[in-house]
Amino acid sequence: MSTAIETRRPGARAWLTLIQCEAKMVARDTAGLIVPIGLPLLILVTSATAAGDQVVAGGRTALDLFVLPLVLTMVIATIGIINMPSFLAYYRRSGILRRLSVTPASPVMVLVAQVVVSVLQAALGIAAALAVAGLLFGANPPAALGRALGVFALAMAAMYALGMMVAAVAPTPNSAVAIGLVLFFALGAVGGMFGGRQALPEPVAEFGGWLPFGAAVDALSAAWAGAAVEPAQLLSLGATVVVGAAVAGLLFRWE
């Protein structure tokens, strides 16, 4: 009898429908939009006003080379590590995932739909923040635009991979936020979120530069200046994507 049943996984239409549904869920929950869309602007405005407009290198100012890379990294780390997992944890707690688990929908579908919708929101927020940075604060585009975009995409993927790992291991929505916050501040602290890594003890600063947060800031900064990005930093981000996605996939629980 079992031979009559072929494995037919949900196709492109199902993926698209799930992504649309997730987008509607987000659009109808106005409070949920504040973090991905409002936060980039807020962090930018509070950080950019302090940055001087003297040129540091390659026609780029301190705002371009130090503030913007840090702001962008903070934004994607907040959304990827704290914001996204809390949604997934809520889905698990409320039983939405449990109900999906008795359909042919796969964990990968659920995770990808969450990430896609989150990326769309984050992209909106970041675009708005960059527009403000350019128009109001006189920020310059990266000297190596393609390199910067590539590094940014990789850094974003790394942050979401960390977030999916948090979502996979956190038992409750509250613990997802707690684990996410701890991870965010730990990576941020050793990655230069509080006044630059040069203020940290040398081994800590070195170590922090290897972790995803510090690596993202440094790599973005290099791309903005038009300099070569250190392979070690790309390796760090790439490894985070692979490890995070693998752990999230292996530990995924529907309930």
Partner: peptide
């Protein structure tokens, strides 16, 4: 993957996407 295609389940404890409509 195979069983989910031929088995329909109504659970006692489950919730659906709250902000989506019946048709959605």
């Amino acid at each position: 993957a195979k069983v989910r295609q031929v088995l329909g389940v109504q659970l006692q404890q489950a919730y659906l996407h709250g902000a989506l409509t019946v048709a959605e």
